[in-house]
């Protein structure tokens, strides 16, 4: 097995202790510290028998150790049981919620990344000139406006007055969902362009003052070619870090946009679960986030080896 193969295997094996740890924290929070949930679920007037019966149903009559084992089992099988409030299986709830969330966050993420890298390369090329200053000032201006302003103004002008998009709601199936997610996607892009362009511009300019760029100039290469071939390739390394760190949040959905546009995504599910003390859903999300985080950092490490030949996974 190559060193990269054994590296990936090792990182996958690291999942086991990390998941056991996450399960332990979840267990401590919900099964030990939170106390008896049956009173919460049945209300003030429940009889002792009803509570005992529910305890058996929820598996809370078992010893604490066995309860921990139940959580660990769910983490490794992805079978998290049923929601307390909707009684649906949690896996189907999450699968259903993931679709609206991803149809919103994925295109938004891709579009904003492409636009930000394009703009950043452009202003790096014209660094110090008028267009650079203009874009930088625009970035700051865009960042200075609250996201609520964008949401309310865009909803009012573009959706309500001009009728270009749906104001809120969601329909499953392509292309039915497009008019519902288009506006939140635009708002996402507008919100992230400011900080992203500034970040990528800095990363690119960091590279422009390196010695190898001087060598490239001494070869007679044009500034455009130097930027697109030599500089951008090196700037990719910090850019990958920045991008992959955002991926887990795509899965969790955008709480803010989903609630303003009434999109039934994961963000909404989490909020409802928190409000109604739906412990199994919260537990499932906590465990899944941990798994996603580990998987994405592994992906990040693998991408590094593609972008940077100096990185060897050992």
């Amino acid at each position: 097995m190559g060193s990269t193969g054994s590296y990936i295997l090792r990182r996958v094996l690291y999942l086991i202790p990390v998941l056991l740890g996450v399960c332990a924290i979840v267990f401590l929070l919900f099964n030990v510290v939170a106390g008896d949930p049956t009173a919460l679920l049945l209300g003030k007037h429940a009889s002792a028998e009803q509570m005992a019966e529910l305890k058996v149903q929820l598996g809370l009559d078992k010893s604490l150790f066995m309860q921990y084992i139940d959580i660990v089992k769910s983490a490794f099988t992805f079978d998290f049981g049923r929601s307390w409030s909707t009684k649906q299986t949690i896996s189907s709830m999450l699968a259903q919620g993931a679709i609206p969330s991803l149809t919103l966050t994925l295109p938004a993420f891709v579009i904003s990344t492409i636009l930000a890298v394009l703009f950043a390369t452009l202003v790096a090329y014209y660094r110090g000139k008028g267009i650079d200053l203009f874009v930088r000032i625009s970035c700051i201006a865009m960042m200075s406006i609250s996201s609520l302003v964008y949401i309310l103004v865009f909803q009012n002008v573009l959706a309500y007055q001009l009728g270009l998009f749906e104001i809120s709601g969601y329909e499953f199936g392509f292309p039915d969902f497009v008019p519902y997610v288009a506006l939140p996607i635009i708002i996402w892009v507008v919100l992230s362009l400011g900080p992203d362009i500034r970040f990528y511009r800095t990363m690119i300019l960091d590279e422009i003052y390196q010695d190898y760029v001087r060598t490239a100039r001494a070869k007679g290469l044009s500034e455009k070619k130097i930027l697109l071939k030599h500089v951008l390739r090196n700037a990719l390394i910090p850019i990958i870090t920045y991008l992959v760190n955002q991926l887990p949040f795509l899965l969790l959905g955008s709480l803010l946009l989903e609630s303003f546009f009434s999109i039934p995504g994961l963000g909404g599910i989490v909020i409802t679960a928190l409000n109604s003390s739906d412990f199994p859903v919260i537990k499932a999300m906590a465990i899944l986030s941990a798994v996603a985080y580990i998987v994405f950092t592994l992906l990040q490490d693998i991408l590094y080896t593609v972008a940077d030949p100096r990185v060897k996974l050992k």
Partner: peptide
């Protein structure tokens, strides 16, 4: 050490 582009 730094005059060559590290990724090519």
């Amino acid at each position: 050490m730094t005059a060559l582009n590290p990724v090519f």
